[in-house]
Design a protein around this nucleic acid. Structure first.
Lengths: 336, 336
DNA sequence: ATGTTCGTTGTTAACGTGTGCAGCTGTATG
DNA sequence: CATACAGCTGCACACGTTAACAACGAACAT
């Protein structure tokens, strides 16, 4: 079948231990025999059996990247950037296992022996049990994107609050006062942070917040469409709308257009996330870039050092968001 | 440390062999002791060591999902649908390892011992060496999305040609005759198939194909924008444009709008792929749905049966595409 | 000459699991 | 009563690798 170190040992007239040492660059071996054996192994197309290695070294070479779910609420761009960010860091030293938490009926397969480390791209409190499960089993863990406060974990999250603040501040600076908000999915922490950013900006600039301008969405396009449709039935329609993500902004724009109104002519719209498509819709969307790729990259790097140092410091790191100004906001009377 | 079958054996006063049999539902064991041991194992929170299992059973429980690259040319929606489709099928029996082929400096880690099976989501002939490597090592393999003819493999691909044919046929039926094509990335097989579909439709309906109406793109938004800009400099501008994917269609629409022209008022635009956003841009995009999720699901299912039956039949299966009619095409004089 | 050390190699056990074979007990069969 | 056989259990080994320890010769110091 496939060639093992014992096969090599026979051919080289040494013990399999010597072969092992040669292939692992051990200092406990003569330079010449080392090279001879390495050469031989290469000729034979030897590849180590990682199951055997794993068993004795107690390392699986597996890293897990878990999403709350892969079915709804996870946007394609989100998955993409996360996978990309992690991939860039881990080289070919590790296997990257990508799954939705809700794909597991039981967490039996999730244990120290099967995973050297785990990254949770968390999007809702529904994965709290999973996070606790992983913590209890002392598996090196990094939680990305969503803030965890119930238990101490290594936590990398976007600065949603400041991002929302800045984009609403921008609207105010452009002269807007009647500013609505289409909120994200309920009990997502990001929903709360972005709402707070909105509120803080409004308060800081002494702009009144009308209760009827705060409408619920759930982060998908249809919900943005529906929410905007509701806003358009109000007596006093807003001049600007802060949509808590870009997909809802798309839906909102569609609703506005269908009423024969234009963006930004009649109503200005801003989003959040800076999806791939956001630059190319008409009008190009002003939004906040959420640094998922950076977060993933940073998170993967942190995880690797944890694994190597066998020691985890548990802190919360905010990764800076960025205001992306495009064409979906109109400057009106009183604006800068 | 963690509990093993030997620990359980001691507590149950049996040999570890008996425990192994109990946990594997072997028929060679008394029903009562089996249940007693299973109960005990559950109480102790026993989880099997998969490295050890792998070693003796010669199965890694790993499935690979490989993309040509994760850096450019792979759209987010593509990754998303693929991962989703596969995930739905493999339950929690397997680990799903997602990587870009170009993440590997050497293929050393890719071998029978480390992967029970491999799916390649192929997008360019650049991954031909990888496919051959996997084939040579007798790893159960399924190639998705791109047609492979050099060597026999299990191959599931979208019927791009017929999809392109139908959308161009649709344009012709709406009265268009001056139909341009913005092509995809060079030497992608899909680029070629879609071009052929275009050509076949044009020929079948006796519509002349102007050479200057065939422009190169590379599947990203910017290239669609640039290509459309070029088309707009022609003396006789086309009345309709077939963009070989939706992202390029977005770019094209933007270019058209910037010339103060409207879609579909002045120029009709169709795409290919039916991305998530395509339904919500303005105007909603008429396009062809490429069934990536179905392909992935089917492919994963095929792969699993291969692994279980230890025998692979190598055929090419076309998965049907679907014409999605929305608002980006205008019916003009002579159209139905 | 004897002991010490160094460099290199081999012997052996270990990791946790599955399995061929032998052994044991009890029951059915002749 | 002897034999066969079914049902269940355990012994011992295997999978491919690493590592603690022992062994050995050579070089070196005393």
């Amino acid at each position: 079948m496939s060639v093992t170190i014992k096969d090599i040992a026979k051919l080289a007239n040494v013990s399999h231990t010597t072969v092992s040492r040669a292939l692992n660059d051990s200092p406990l071996i003569n330079q010449e025999t080392k090279e001879r054996i390495q050469q031989l192994a290469a000729n034979l197309n030897y590849t180590p059996n990682y199951s055997a290695k794993s068993l004795v070294l107690d390392r699986s070479y597996n890293l897990g990247l878990f999403f709350s779910t892969l079915h709804t609420g996870t946007s394609a761009g989100f998955l993409y950037e996360a996978v990309k960010g992690v991939n860039d860091v881990i080289q070919d030293q590790y296997n990257l296992i990508v799954r939705g938490i809700d794909d597991y009926k039981s967490f039996q397969k999730i244990n120290r022996k099967s995973f050297d480390g785990i990254m949770v791209m968390s999007q809702s409190s529904s994965d709290q049990p999973f996070i606790e499960y992983v913590t209890e089993r002392d598996i090196p863990l990094v939680v990305l994107n969503r803030q965890i406060d119930a238990i101490p974990v290594m936590n990398l999250i976007p600065d949603d609050l400041r991002g929302a603040f800045r984009v609403v501040e921008y609207l105010i600076n452009q002269g807007h006062r009647d500013i609505a908000i289409i909120e994200g999915k309920e009990n997502f922490k990001s929903t709360q942070a972005r709402r707070e950013g909105y509120m803080e900006a409004m308060n800081q600039y002494n702009v009144t917040v009308r209760e009827e301008y705060k409408v619920q969405g759930n982060y998908d396009v249809e919900s943005g469409y529906a929410a905007m449709a509701r806003l358009l039935t109000l007596d006093l329609t807003p001049t600007a709308v802060f949509c808590c993500n870009d997909e809802m902004a798309l839906g909102a724009i569609k609703a506005i257009n269908e009423k024969q109104l234009s963006v930004p002519g009649d109503i200005s719209v801003v989003g959040f996330d800076d999806q791939l498509f956001s630059a190319f819709v008409t009008p190009a969307l002003t939004t906040v870039r959420r640094p998922i790729e950076e977060i993933s990259r940073e998170g993967a790097a942190k995880l690797l050092t944890f694994i190597e140092n066998k020691q985890v410091d548990k802190e919360t790191i905010f990764i800076r968001t960025e205001l992306i100004i495009r064409d979906s906001v109109k400057t009106i009377a009183g604006g800068a």
